[in-house]
Design a protein around this nucleic acid. Structure first.
Lengths: 223, 223
DNA sequence: CAAGAATGTGACCGCATGGTCACCTTGCAT
DNA sequence: ATGCAAGGTGACCATGCGGTCACATTCTTG
């Protein structure tokens, strides 16, 4: 029994690792049952037996990735609530740069999410949006007079795009996307934007309380 | 002779139109010589004869699109130099939202540019980056003390990502991506960001002159 | 040991793809 | 009218894909 499990688990590992490597090297466009099986050095039949085909394999692989949840501490920790909304947003953005910057596979998956919608990408999107919303809602609650989700959306989406774009283009508006220097400029730009915000976002809690009387007039059907 | 040209040009049109429709409906992933020929109601052989295969067809189609150059006026016009850098940036960003928002085909092409690099995507990227750089350099020259390209990169990349993302996800950080209301919030957020900038970007030309003595200390090998 | 389940392989099928070919038809010019 | 090039078609080929099947081997358990 232990041997049987071990044998099977070993080949499952080979398959999962082959999937990861394939995604990293060819992107999702090069992912198929033939390519994965060949790379794993195994018969493709086993992909169907053990994972019930490519969708199941992708789900299984996704499950053991902690990309999406590894920074859960940043979103829910108690200590972080001590910090001002501005620095909280900033550290979230920089964590995203860090996580995406060192993980080509993750970037490929996120490119994939941009062009195809299926059960896998839908599941990924749901997880992510749920976590992201928990984060942003806490900050938004503290900061009236400003559409925090919209502003942070632009900044977060901006670094996402530039991260993904770095694969196919070396510069964007003249800013280099493949050098440390370029990303330091972009990080600095994020800081400039955040620091230009109203004082209640940057630690002036008195101003935050004072301006708290004005309610937001945002649409109610935001879901 | 006139008839011959007309006949050929007519079928060339059919093919080009079929390509456009195919991109719009299936994205670049669904573009192939068989699909295009069928949709055009023509033999695929003609694609090879008239366009020398798919790459040539794409180049030809690209050539007659004015996406990338249609807003050339915004980038080079003389009247626009009357406006402050801030409003100039803002109107550029809104023009991008407008152009992308009403053109699904364009969005598909830009998704394609994110995942594949070949002679076509390279050519597109070059054209775009050249025009964008001409725009940003004029503004950057007027505004020391701030890394304008980096800040504008984040905003422009942000709306690009959100535009592309709207295909596969309806919300981002709770902001709806498929409603007028959502995009008005995002436009408003862009305005907030720009207005929070130093005064020399928003029409205070005196302040611009005063702060002009401090030179930028940005890397010189930006190209 | 024997039976049977688990593991693994290679061949095979149907299908769609990109690409080429021979052939037919239309139109024009001598 | 004859001849010839341009325009257009359908069949064909090799290839790679996802998917299934029959079969061999190995392990576990009666």
């Amino acid at each position: 029994m232990k041997q049987a499990m071990s044998r099977r688990e070993r080949t499952e590992r080979q398959i999962l690792d082959a999937l990861e490597a394939q995604i990293r090297e060819t992107g999702m466009g090069g992912v198929g049952v033939n390519a994965i099986a060949n790379r794993a050095g195994v018969s493709k039949e086993l992909i169907y037996r053990y994972f019930d085909g490519m969708p199941g394999l992708l789900l299984a692989w996704m499950q053991e990735q902690d990309f999406w949840t590894s920074h859960h501490d940043l979103l829910t920790s108690g200590e972080s609530s001590q910090q001002s909304p501005g620095t909280l947003v900033l550290s979230m953005l920089k964590a995203q740069i860090e996580a995406l910057g060192k993980n080509e596979t993750l970037r490929e998956v996120r490119r994939w999410e941009l062009i195809e919608v299926n059960e896998v990408t839908a599941k990924l999107a749901n997880r992510r949006e749920k976590a992201a919303r928990a984060f942003i809602d806490r900050i938004d609650g503290l900061t009236p007079n400003m559409d925090v989700p919209a502003v942070v959306s632009i900044m977060l989406a901006g670094i996402l795009y530039l991260m993904l774009r770095s694969k196919t283009e070396s510069h964007f508006l003249g800013v280099p996307l493949r050098t440390e220097e370029g990303w330091q400029r972009l990080s600095a730009a994020l800081e400039q934007i955040v620091q230009a915000f109203p004082p209640e976002l940057n630690g002036d809690s008195l101003a935050a309380l004072e301006s708290g009387r004005e309610p937001k007039k945002r649409s109610s059907k935001e879901q």
